[in-house]
């Protein structure tokens, strides 16, 4: 029978109704079941103080969290699709992503985002070896693997192997350019427009642009 990962290993039948009602599975831990770290306590204390002193309200706080959670890779995808269909925009996006994004009513946030373009000669990949810096305003919250030590240490050390694990086999003649976001810049990749997409609308093109292609671990494909 199929046991969920991390499940129990003892043998008995779960299919019938004669299961011992006192038998308990270990419950999945709730968020509050892990001990609070010092910085979590500090964050809760500071939040309470700021609300108590009227710097912002509980609803301001909630709304901001909701706004941040609502950010997603579809925003970056819109920029890419526009760059694929408008050469002038492509150049402006590469030169100054904040100003170019503003043309579409998109806010790139307080931290400068550099857009790096894949070409027939060069494939770009983004990592933050020191922590988990990520262009949240264009891509939303980062995937867990992006924050893992495994990805962070190997993306700079053996990028081609990492790319192959993501299903991206690079031609040996294509150079890899790994961008380590160590300080005050963030990075988004402008992938190459896939062949066979000539008749597609900008909206259809945006649908081809995935989160992973904006990080550079894969490339968009036509359908």
């Amino acid at each position: 029978m199929n046991e969920p990962a991390g499940g129990h290993s003892h043998e008995h039948d779960h299919g019938g109704y004669d299961v011992d009602p006192t038998h308990r599975h270990p419950p999945q831990p709730d968020l509050e079941d892990t001990p609070l770290a010092r910085h979590q306590v500090m964050q809760m204390a500071v939040t309470s103080l700021l609300i108590e002193k009227g710097i912002f309200s509980g609803d301001d706080m909630r709304a901001q969290v909701e706004r941040m959670d609502g950010l997603n890779p579809g925003i970056g995808a819109r920029l890419v699709a526009r760059a694929w269909t408008d050469e002038g925009f492509r150049q402006r996006l590469l030169a100054d992503s904040r100003a170019a994004a503003a043309e579409l009513g998109i806010d790139t946030g307080p931290i400068p985002i550099l857009v790096m373009e894949n070409t027939p000669e060069t494939h770009n990949l983004v990592v933050c070896t020191l922590c988990s810096c990520y262009p949240k305003f264009l891509l939303g919250v980062p995937p867990d693997w992006y924050k893992s030590r495994n990805y962070r240490r190997r993306a700079v050390r053996e990028p081609r192997t990492v790319l192959a694990e993501f299903g991206t086999e690079l031609d040996p003649n294509v150079a890899v350019r790994v961008h380590d976001s160590t300080a005050d810049m963030r990075y988004m990749i402008l992938p190459a427009r896939p062949a066979g997409t000539e008749g597609m609308s900008e909206e259809e093109l945006a649908g081809l642009v995935t989160r992973d292609s904006l990080i550079g671990v894969t490339v968009p494909r036509a359908g």
Binding site: V156, R157, V176, D180, S181
Partner: peptide, 22 residues
């Protein structure tokens, strides 16, 4: 050059890592 960062680097000699440094 990635080959300058890792003497046993397995990729192309044209591969690079670009880092923000003060």
């Amino acid at each position: 050059a990635s080959t300058s960062l890792w003497p046993d680097y397995g990729g192309s000699k044209h591969d690079r890592v670009e880092i923000e440094i003060y």
